[in-house]
């Protein structure tokens, strides 16, 4: 028997779908803001605990040059054993509801394929990314590689410097954002509906930031 003390633990081979996802990041072309593809997404979860809670639904839309193509939107519902009756009233997804549900892994595969190397946009996007990363970890996979943009952060940025200090210290909810930007709140609290609303908010914020018509993607971060 041959001991091999120093050999590093063999890195488990990554599944094909993840390799394909990673390959998107080998070379990222420099694009203008009009050419850049933004994926605005939202998740509905059983709660706010990143370990205990689970994603129930993911909704996402693609934005290129201020245009959203409905045909190219993403809406999926996940089968989960974790169920939290306390949040049902928010997202309305029942344990045995009538949405067609797929497994977490299947949803993950579809989602990675959908987002590719696009910039991910979300309201408080950190939480949604964390929840996706939790799925990746449960399947022994590395974290998401995409750049992310938070609409709350962008919104604060879009406010004139004079007013920046007067903004409330507390977090801006998506509802606050809708009120300020005059966006209709129908379909709020479905993943796809929130993704859509966030997308409209994102477009409005971008146009405010782009007053001088020289906004670059880099300026957003």
């Amino acid at each position: 028997m041959k001991f091999n003390w120093f050999q590093k633990k063999v890195k488990k081979a990554l599944p094909t779908f993840f390799i394909e996802y990673e390959n998107n990041f080998l070379e990222i072309p420099k694009l203008t803001i009009e050419e850049t593809k933004f994926i605005v997404f939202d998740t509905e979860t059983t709660g706010f605990h990143k370990i205990k809670d689970r994603i129930l639904s993911i909704g996402a839309v693609t934005l290129t040059n201020n245009t959203l193509n409905i045909n190219n939107s993403f809406e999926t519902y996940l089968k989960q054993d974790v169920f939290n009756p306390e949040t049902v009233h928010i997202h309305g997804i029942l344990k045995n509801g009538n949405h067609t549900k797929i497994t977490e892994l299947e949803a993950l595969k579809q989602f990675l394929k959908y987002i590719g190397n696009s910039i991910l946009v979300g309201h408080h996007v950190g939480f949604d990314v964390t929840m996706i990363n939790q799925i990746l970890q449960r399947h022994h996979l590395p974290n998401l590689k995409n750049k992310t943009l938070d609409t709350e952060f962008l919104f604060r940025k879009s406010k004139h410097a004079v007013y920046q200090n007067t903004l409330p210290k507390k977090r801006y909810t998506l509802d606050n954002l809708c009120d300020e930007l005059n966006i209709s709140k129908s379909d709020r609290h479905t993943a796809i509906g929130d993704a859509f609303i966030t997308a409209i908010a994102f477009l409005k914020i971008i146009s405010r930031l782009n007053k001088n018509n020289n906004l670059t993607v880099r300026d957003l971060f």
Partner: peptide
């Protein structure tokens, strides 16, 4: 696939 936005547009 379900498409809630399409329903809204509809």
């Amino acid at each position: 696939m379900k498409n809630s936005i399409a329903e809204r547009v509809f």
